[in-house]
Design a protein around this nucleic acid. Structure first.
Length: 326
DNA sequence: AAGTCACGCAACCGCTCGCGC
DNA sequence: GGCGCGAGCGGTTGCGTGACT
């Protein structure tokens, strides 16, 4: 469509607002209400476009705006909501009284995002950034220990799945397992274990054949996933929360999920992702919605397929040197 | 004291959506 | 159904300010 910017008209002022302009706008809205934003500046005697007036009012002049630093609780809520809603700033702002979407967006970009990055957490996925680790060694441990002859084209294609954050976690798990396991153990057992762990992570999603080529699918000789390691679903706890905070966060999440307005937002946000409604997440076993253990209780094949296709949206970052596992 | 740099925030831009004609 | 318009949203920009050299 390409509408012309509303401020292209001659004589309309741009840039920072003066106190006089603020006063004129505030007085007008308090007297008449905003009404039609396009006609407002003319009626209020302002040399501004309606859009600029609306932004100034909603982001700065509105009387119910809370200014000042974000509290810890607000910050925690923002992180939680962002993990579910993504960059839906207006939806996040709707859950934080007195805060504007613009303010939250700025705070995210200047504070929270940077802090998460420093902590090695991907601010987009909220997952630990295993890509910062030595990927080649992880991949070698996860795949390379298997007979190299298995690494044919199909194997390489399947290795792309390793770039999925969920599977990256499992690759790390595999590394730990390989260190723990008896060196004489059949390497295929390792794959089986990782596969089983992966299956646990994605619920009833039938994805094994996409992740593991047929030749990797061997009967599991040992279903013991412990091997002295904690393999509980809690492995998906975001590291920045810590166990204690995570429990609190989970409780908060449950509370949030009891909010019908938020539930509507969540469902809207998840429509394109294909998750089943977040309401299907058993509240008795709260689960981080962004985690590998997100429940997939989709009732239809189509929904499961959609989810699976998103889980395995395969992309190889340029930074990954795939020659390491060729 | 002057210059440089990094940061935070207000404001703008471009786009989409919803509605009325 | 197509079009124009208003409103809203998310990404980006640019300026002011404080810290640092």
């Amino acid at each position: 469509m390409g509408r012309a910017p509303c401020c292209n008209k001659n004589g309309l002022k741009k840039g920072p607002w003066t106190p006089e302009e603020d006063l004129m706008l505030t007085n007008y809205i308090q007297t008449h209400g905003p009404g039609n934003w396009r006609t407002l500046p003319k009626n209020a005697g302002l040399q501004r476009c309606g859009k600029s007036c609306r932004l100034r009012w909603t982001n700065y002049l509105r009387p119910d705006i809370k200014r000042g630093r974000f509290s810890f609780e607000e910050e925690e809520t923002i992180i939680q909501l962002h993990s579910v809603l993504g960059n839906k700033w207006s939806a996040i702002a709707a859950r934080l009284p007195g805060r504007t979407d613009n303010e939250i967006k700025n705070y995210w970009n200047t504070h929270i995002r940077k802090r998460l990055l420093r902590m090695g957490i991907d601010p987009v996925t909220h997952a630990p950034r295993l890509d910062l680790l030595d990927m080649s060694s992880i991949l070698r441990s996860a795949i390379g220990s298997v007979n190299p002859s298995f690494l044919n084209l199909q194997g390489l294609l399947s290795a792309q799945a390793l770039m999925n954050p969920e599977f990256l976690k499992l690759a790390a798990t595999a590394t730990l397992l390989s260190l723990k396991n008896d060196h004489n153990q059949n390497p295929l057992n390792l794959v089986s274990q990782v596969q089983q762990q992966f299956n646990n992570s994605v619920g009833n999603c039938q994805v094994q054949s996409q992740v593991f080529p047929n030749q990797f699918q061997t009967p599991t000789e040992s279903n013991n996933m412990n091997n002295g390691l904690s393999m509980s679903p809690d492995s998906s706890i975001p590291s920045y929360l810590g166990e204690h905070n995570y429990l609190n966060a989970q409780q908060n999440q449950v509370d949030l999920l009891q909010d019908p307005e938020l539930v509507h937002l969540l469902n809207s946000a998840n429509q394109n992702i294909g998750y089943d409604s977040v309401l299907s997440t058993p509240l008795s076993t709260p689960t981080p919605l962004n985690s590998s253990s997100t429940y997939v209780n989709s009732s239809t094949e189509e929904e499961r397929d959609t989810y699976c296709s998103d889980v395995f949206k395969l992309e190889i970052p340029e930074s990954l040197d795939i020659s390491d596992f060729l």
